[in-house]
């Protein structure tokens, strides 16, 4: 067999395999959005762990009202070190009863993450 034939065969094999993987890889990410309700009181958010990340990954809160975030027992390891660096929020939430409270005053979209940046999510302040 000539090299050119082999190279074409290799390319065809890779293309077919890639096409198979691509066509079967339609994303079904669990990117649930959670909007907290508030009556002028503290807006409570409980995050859990699902598919290698925080769940829900998007949280919507209202500006000018305190937000209390806690992590349930499914969240473990470095994911318990919770940070929103642009709001200067950083706390190690050792147990589900621990929480971090802050009041977002500026509307916008903020990234929350664990201290190593492995688990991430979005906080939308309306």
């Amino acid at each position: 067999m000539k090299n050119i034939t082999i190279i074409i065969s290799v390319i065809v094999m890779i293309a077919l395999a890639s096409a198979f993987v691509y066509s079967n890889s339609s994303s079904t990410n669990d990117k649930k959005t959670e909007t907290t309700t508030s009556n002028g009181e503290v807006q409570k958010v409980i995050l859990s762990y699902k598919s290698g990340n925080y769940y829900p990954q998007t949280v919507t809160v209202k500006s000018g009202q305190p937000v209390e975030i806690s992590l349930d027992s499914s969240v473990k390891g470095c994911y318990r070190s919770f940070t929103i660096s642009s709001l200067n929020v950083k706390k190690y939430l050792a147990s589900p009863s621990d929480s971090v409270t802050f009041t977002p005053t500026k509307k916008g979209t903020y990234r929350f993450a664990c201290s190593m940046g492995m688990g991430t999510g979005t906080l939308i302040v309306e």
Binding site: A17, S18, V21, N24, S25, S26, S27, T28
Partner: peptide, 9 residues
């Protein structure tokens, strides 16, 4: 395929 397809390829 969704979970492992790319990594097996």
């Amino acid at each position: 395929v969704q979970k492992y397809g790319l990594f097996l390829l």
